[in-house]
Design a binder for these strands. Sequence first.
RNA 1: GGAAAGGUGACCGAGUGGCCGAAGGUGCUUGCUUGGAAAGCAAGUGUAGGGCAACCUACCGGGGGUUCGAAUCCCCCCCUUUCCGCCA
Length: 424
Amino acid sequence: MLDIRLIRDNPQAVKAALARVGDTTSVDSILELDARRRTLVGEIEAMRSERNAVSKAVPSIKDPAEKQAKISEMRALGDRLALLEKEGAEADRVFETAMLSIPNMPSEDTPDGADDSANVVAGEFGTRPEFAFQPKTHWELGESTGLIDFERGTKISGTRFYILKGELARLQRALISFMLDVHTREHGFIEVYPPFMVKEHCLYGTGQLPKFGENLYHDAEEDFWFVPTAEVPVTNMYRDEILDNATLPLVHVAYTACFRREKMSAGKDVRGIKRGHQFDKVEMVAFVRPEESSAMLMRLMESAEHILDRLGLPWRRLQICAGDLSFTAAAKYDLEVWAAGCGEWLEVSSISNFRDFQARRAGIRFRRNAGDKPEFVHTLNGSGLALPRIMIAILENYQTGDGRIRVPEALAPWMGGTSVIGPG
RNA sequence: GGAAAGGUGACCGAGUGGCCGAAGGUGCUUGCUUGGAAAGCAAGUGUAGGGCAACCUACCGGGGGUUCGAAUCCCCCCCUUUCCGCCA
């Protein structure tokens, strides 16, 4: 959520910023709603003030007739007030919903561009593997080795579900432990294991609601929503809190399964394990002082890149242009890994600086010094990393040609020394 | 799922219709004291909205109701704790 004061005081600047993400109408309409709301607030508060003053005086009025007259007067005022309050509440509700529907403003250093074709490749790292044979796709390898059971996955849960088996299931488990261990022991992040289901208000806090509910799963009978990313529960851990300045910057790392309806992308990426309704991810979530968020974005990005390097995977860094930013992000980088079998760059991490956009929604603040007014923190997050596509990259890049797959050296301690998986 | 007891400021904890934005304590900040520190003493210490200065308004789990007036009374809901049941 943007700061309404900023919009009021600098409407043209906000308008210009929002135009970069393709939003050209929000500012004018929000200013109208704000003006209307404030007019009502003024009227309502004046009436309340009068009522409070008179009510306070009522017990000391001696003359019974005069006392009764005042009470009647206040009763009438109360009736008028009730109507106005109803109107005010509705104006507030409309205003709030509109505020929650305005996207974040892009950072100054975010490049212009209308869509993903304008994203900037900001570096390519590692070496793409070369093969003396035609490399197979991961779905071919998965089936030929028996390490992925697509048929039974769809049998029990439908399309876009699969079952990892044997050494590949173990590989994913090893990857999760490896990532968590590197992030906690080498990068100094604090591990948390959050709930995979949250209350609705959490989705408002991080920005999935009210606009993107169609991508979420939720329980029909109770207020439980399946998390689409660990960002949701971990960011909301501190909702409505005033954090101690000494705890900042605070970085958590969490493993969760993620659940997404992926309604929008039906028909795309249907082969293999690239895009499912359920996938695993290790996520980094940071809470920092405003002046620290740009540096933290870099730190999170480097932490994710470190994992890719350790796994010996070829990858590239993309700076996301304004038009391709997600709703909540002010700045964003994607990391993509090269998958030799399907010959594609696969997004394995998205690192975003939300600045105070989520913090304002979720009420996450800190106090610089005792006695100071609370300020909103800046929040950031980044995948570190998404598991299925890392699995794809390992399967396809580390295939040996005889139907087997080498295990990246860095994973050896987490794989009990197993260096090759597959039949034979 | 059943029963009971509770949800008040950073924390503990008073408060059953107006004198309560809320006693008292703890914590925190500042000052005094001290060679320094602890202890002690004194003062200060919620958030948000509107005017943006004085000031006004709202908030005592959430929502609704009664009333001239509600933290205090009524209704609904949520949550927590304990016991029972069920389970991993």
